[in-house]
């Protein structure tokens, strides 16, 4: 038996909204440590990795580790029926083929809605991601990151992220011209959430397909800050810290030959 209760259905809804454009079917692996999910897009360019630890839930029970294979679009249909502050309970039997989602309206305890989603058998490729030291880490407000990528995507299909000790520069070049946004490292004393934190041992410049970077911005509603971890010629690790877990992407770079 698996049963997990989230005090705010919106947390799970935002997670699923963040993956809907690139990832069709995903396995949500439930264990005594919480719920985790890892999925690669069909083109093998982006990988999403999510972990919601047990502390994220107001109650949590998982007698035996199970994998809940779910179609993201179907799951969203159900999650979108909920109010953001509904309490969500997810339940599955060990050998069942359904995930039950129960929504309780915190402002109207007389209303309870219940949905059953058919589980899928998803044959997923699993990747072994090596432990990596990143030589450049830029942490910035997620809304700023989202804005930069949205603005520059209009200029070109690929965006270069250039991290140096004193700042980070995002550049796009395309048929209509080019554009760049530079952010200087700052501390914004007293305004930690707005600061641009830069830790660079070695300057790094990596180019990415802007379509995939756009996908990694969709998680901005999940956390106020995002960190971009880079090292020469390897995938960027883009991570949003959740209250009890993380929501992250690995994105393969474009390399000049």
């Amino acid at each position: 038996m698996f049963e997990a209760k989230l005090n705010e259905a919106s947390v799970f809804k935002k997670i699923v909204e963040s993956v809907k454009d690139g990832f069709k079917n995903c396995n949500f692996d439930c264990s005594e440590e919480g719920i985790s999910m890892e999925s690669m897009d069909d083109a093998h360019i982006a990988l999403v990795s999510m972990k919601l630890g047990v502390e994220a839930f107001s109650s949590y029970r998982c007698d035996r580790s199970i994998s809940l294979g779910l179609n993201i679009e179907s799951l969203l249909k159900v999650l979108r029926t909920a109010n953001n502050n509904d309490v969500l309970t997810m339940r599955a039997e060990d050998d069942g083929d359904l995930l039950t989602l129960v929504f309780e309206d915190s402002s109207n305890p007389d209303r309870i809605s219940e949905y059953n989603l058919k589980l899928l058998n998803i044959d997923q490729e699993h990747m072994s991601i090596p432990e990596q030291e990143y030589t450049a880490t830029v942490t910035l407000p997620s809304s700023e990151y989202q804005r930069i990528i949205r603005d520059l995507t209009q200029l070109g299909d690929s965006i270069t992220i250039d991290a140096a000790k004193d700042g980070v520069r995002f550049t796009a070049e395309g048929d209509i011209g080019s554009g760049s946004v530079s952010l200087k490292a700052n501390t914004n004393v007293g305004e930690d959430e707005k600061s641009i934190d830069i830790a660079v041992e070695e300057p790094v410049a990596l180019g990415f397909n802007s379509k995939y970077l756009t996908q990694t911005c969709k998680a901005a509603p999940l956390a106020p800050r995002v960190s971009l971890n880079m090292c020469k010629r390897i995938p960027i690790f883009i991570s949003y810290k959740l209250q009890a877990g993380h929501f992250s992407f690995f994105l393969a770079p474009q390399i000049s030959e």
């Binding site: 990747m127 072994s128 090596p130 390897i234 995938p235 690995f250 393969a252 474009q254």
Partner: peptide
């Protein structure tokens, strides 16, 4: 010219 790499170029496929 630039080449789009794939995650498989970096990560081991289990």
């Amino acid at each position: 010219s630039t080449r789009q790499t794939l995650l498989k170029d970096f990560f081991l496929n289990l």
